[in-house]
Computed example of a mutant assay.
Amino acid sequence: MASGLLSDCASSSSCSIRLHQFKGKSRAFARPFGCNGSISLPLRNLSVKNCTFASNSTGWSLSAVSSAMTDNASAIIIDGKAVAKQIREEVASEVARLKDAFGIIPGLAVILVGSRKDSQTYVRNKKKSCEDVGITSYEVNLPEYCTEEEVLKHISVFNNDPSVHGILVQLPLPRHMNEQNILNSVSIEKDVDGFNPLNIGCLALQGREPLFVPCTPKGCMDLLHRHNIEIKGKRAAVIGRSNIVGMPAALLLQRENATVTVVHSRTSNPEEIVRQADIVISACGIANLVRGSWLKPGAVVIDVGINPVEDPESPRGYRLVGDVCYEEACKIASAITPVPGGVGPMTIAMLLSNTLTSAKRIHNIK
């Protein structure tokens, strides 16, 4: 049954997407349900696998999305790469202003425990992104067998370092460590991942504002905003209820007056619920789970999933697909994020933005 396939595990790891965790079992190389989803990301007016991409200097509008559906019966591609590039340029400009006007350079500290290849890749990407926008990066690499106390010690040092404005602990951590203890030890003023319970609590409460919003859900919302997609009064379905993506995404949609339903591993009728939604955010980590038949015609689809599936024709032996069967969905949806190139680039862009915000807040700069 489809409902039994939905995972509640996080589909991102410390502002990066996990590739293969599913209730403690590997989902790597799960076979897709007959969906290719292989795409490239052109910048303007190029048809890609039955999906039309069109952009302009002022962004997207919902009327443009509707027009695309009428004229081409295909979805607008929401290009996360292009939006993330714009955000990075905005951050770089503001970082340069802080340096020139106040002598302040934002700093981001990353703690990596162990030698997981995917985690190492994420940390390298974050470090390079920091360098590109002028943010100073600090990195601590600890062995898999180190103690929880050693990690806490490094966090304490960064908490007290005025040159560090953001602290990120790369997840997942080794099994012998208490993840919550470690995340809770990060100063709330430097919690650029947005995982501190006080930040999440403020996100959940009306009339309260968190200091930081988790990066991947924030990136999803930014894609909707920059494409002028109406949220207020719309029905939204969030697939997956992880602390990292699903739950905060649902809270963010609700804050903007959407009527939100969360679909998870115990939901008995996921297809019916998703089919009623004007906006679908999928973050369950199951390749091609959401078929075209699940979607309401004209729905906007934000696909957070990044899942490796077998592909003998690929040099790597696999390719990456989302939670949504792209080739089917782009014929039904009005707008959709591709995988790769959709939400993924936005996650690091939001991390850079949060770090900049932290530096300005700590130094009381508008």
Rank of each mutant, 00 (worst) to 15 (best):
S314L: 07
K296I: 09
A68G: 15
V245P: 10
S57C: 11
L108W: 06
S7C: 14
C35W: 02
S353P: 00
C325W: 02
I78A: 08
Q21H: 05
I155F: 04
Q276V: 00
K127Q: 14
L152N: 12
C330L: 04
I87T: 15
A30T: 13
H20N: 10
R124T: 14
E148M: 13
T259E: 03
R319L: 07
L251Q: 14
S293N: 15
V300A: 11
F53H: 14
S16W: 01
G298R: 06
F22D: 14
F195V: 11
R291G: 14
L252C: 13
H154F: 12
I200D: 04
F29H: 10
L168H: 02
V339D: 13
I302W: 03
I231S: 05
S129V: 09
E139A: 02
I239H: 05
V133H: 06
R361Y: 04
K85Q: 15
D323H: 08
A96T: 07
E150Y: 01
H227Q: 10
V186R: 00
I182P: 02
E94F: 03
H225M: 09
M1Y: 11
R124W: 09
A299W: 11
L223E: 11
D118F: 08
W60I: 03
H165I: 05
C35K: 03
K234Y: 06
M350H: 04
P174A: 02
F22Y: 10
A287Y: 08
V245H: 06
N196F: 02
E131Y: 10
P312C: 00
E256H: 14
S47F: 14
H20A: 08
G201R: 00
